[in-house]
Design a protein around this nucleic acid. Structure first.
Lengths: 199, 199, 199, 199
DNA sequence: TTTTAAACGAGACGGTACGTCGCGTCTTTAT
DNA sequence: ATAAAGACGCGACGTACCGTCTCGTTTAAAA
């Protein structure tokens, strides 16, 4: 490992990410400003601009720092008790809990808004957050296929979308309450098959 | 119908909505400003503030004007050829076409960003755009139930979510290309049932 | 007189000029900022930038407002008691008093610094401050010529420079104390002739 | 002479002074920055701050280096051909030439601005530049007194001010063109006596 | 010759101010 | 009476420099 060339201050980095998450949690994405983040972090604005191209980029780093912790790529996968339906329900219930907790919800919504507005941030988001998560989900589904719980022919990407996108969408657009009932019902509907009479 | 009480200038209204859509289509939501909309519309800023509470509200009106045309609630429902799978595929293909057309995509994305950031706008959006659309979709699915193509027990809301949310999500987050292949595949996966061995 | 086209706020204008003079008097030209002037005046920065191109320009207007009072071009000329030497001495003593009074000295020094650095401001300064003043001085000298106290052939511009520039210079560069002794002595030296034996 | 205590780099010193003069000559005093000087000199900012307290101080050193060359206090005095008027005219003509040459004018103006704004720099300027120069001028005038060309009673300081301040002032404030005509005329006016009828 | 302490280049840091843009309000002018 | 025009107080933008503070790296004096 070559010696670090830059003398970046980790204290400043941490203070900025923390301040960003807090601020965005308090006043929302649109009303947060880089100026306010810097002030709350006790940092010069330039220190933010030096290392991040945009407010959204700060939020992405903050989210990654908070949710992945460190270097090791998220090691633990989705639960596998042998019961696919129960496991997916549990995962979605956990998601519901998070999305109903303002401490998580506000920054995540802010990050999402940023991603919607900024194509290049969307790419980074995809690469660093969406894809790793999707991979874990597919791994769980793949295990279910191997265990004979899921048709081996089904497209796992489509299944993942089908299970998780409705929740994300309902949350994002606030088109309805996010409850265990909703997600449980969704899982049952999706995983039970829909056409009738069954071919 | 009672005579209009306000002397609201329809010319100004139209100019503002047009300018808003154009501007947002050119520079995106975040970089658009009420100031610029007013300038482009040849209108005083106050004329905008008089009638709309926010930029997002202007966009919502603009979208409704453009896509519904006028007062009468969108009368035509989804196509019904008797083949549910084909009809849904056609609807999603049309959606894909729209979302891939920058003239529609940019303002719609802008509107969505506005909705994400503004809870009260989200409510209005839900009422005036999301719910009417959802009603049409459910009507088509309900017809399929009556025709014996779909289990009578299935929750139509869940089916609608399952079919349309993945597309919306993929579009919003740009997590993948929006193609006919994707939507066709999605419809087949969702409507064919997933568990194996079946029940 | 045509009706005013702009709706400029006189309250803001006055507040800005006052704040500028005060601030410059307290911390000096270099350490004054437009930001601080605006803050002290209770005014938005843009209101300064809208009407003045630079800090120095504000100071010039402030100086003119303070020292000329209003529209009528400074009507009173230099004193004329019939005794040229005494009159010039009195004028220079008054100048000394002003330049030794921090309330006048600091803003005037600030203005001068601004003029030195900005060619176009120098032109305006010349036109609006220097030339009117010089005209008054020359009028007094011209009267002396008509009264036979001064050679009719002498170049009045040169005499004005000779009498006033040394004081200005000593003040500007702080190359010595500004006292009545100095100015009295200067007037005597200049107006008495220097060559010896005379012509 | 004790050995140098500090290991100051003469290469750096020279590079800094050169860069300062060049930069100030190109963009003016106000728009020059220590940062830019350091960059142009290929030097760390700290190396400037280590040895000079301010931008103006650098300029003063640069001016002294350029115009005095080295340690020995400017040995050559003003010309003395025996004709005072001609000699002073020649000196002023040389001054005019310098002040009309942008390569000298810009840095000198910058230095002057710095001196106006900084009282302690003014003191140093006085001691190291103004006074030595003034001494030379007075020596020439003193010689004229000894030669019977100038009244023995006249105050030489006043005469120096009277002859040189008008030129400096006209240059500084750009209140008129700097020409040989002006300076020649000035010398004649000053040195010929002004009162009439001559006492 | 080797050591060693300074001065060096580089540049990150917490800040201040820049000059611009846009906010939402308010006032004036001209239909 | 209503609309365009746009000035206003305000706040944030992203940039430029401030002066201070580490960082390794010369480099020249002392050992």
């Amino acid at each position: 490992m070559p010696p670090r060339i830059t003398r970046r201050s980790d204290a400043a980095r941490t203070a900025i990410l923390t301040a960003a998450v807090e601020l965005v949690g308090e006043v929302g994405y649109g009303k947060s400003s880089i100026e306010a983040i810097a002030a709350r972090a006790g940092v010069g604005k330039q220190t933010i601009y030096r290392w991040w191209p945009s407010k959204g980029s700060v939020l992405l780093d903050a989210y990654l720092d908070a949710n992945v912790g460190g270097e090791p790529e998220d090691p633990q996968g989705l639960p596998n008790t042998g019961d696919l339906v129960a496991d997916i329900k549990a995962v979605l219930r956990a998601t519901v809990d998070e999305l109903n907790d303002p401490r998580f919800e506000r920054p995540l919504r802010a990050l999402t808004v940023a991603v919607l507005e900024d194509e290049s941030l969307a790419a980074e988001y995809s690469r660093r957050l969406d894809e790793p998560t999707r991979r874990l989900k597919k791994e769980r589904l793949c295990a279910a296929q191997r265990q004979g719980q899921l048709s081996p022919e089904v497209d796992l990407d489509a299944v993942v979308d089908t299970l998780f996108a409705p929740v994300a969408q309902r949350w994002l657009l606030r088109s309805g309450p996010l409850t265990y009932e909703y997600t449980d019902h969704l899982v049952e509907t999706v995983l039970t098959g829909l056409l009738w009479p069954r071919s």
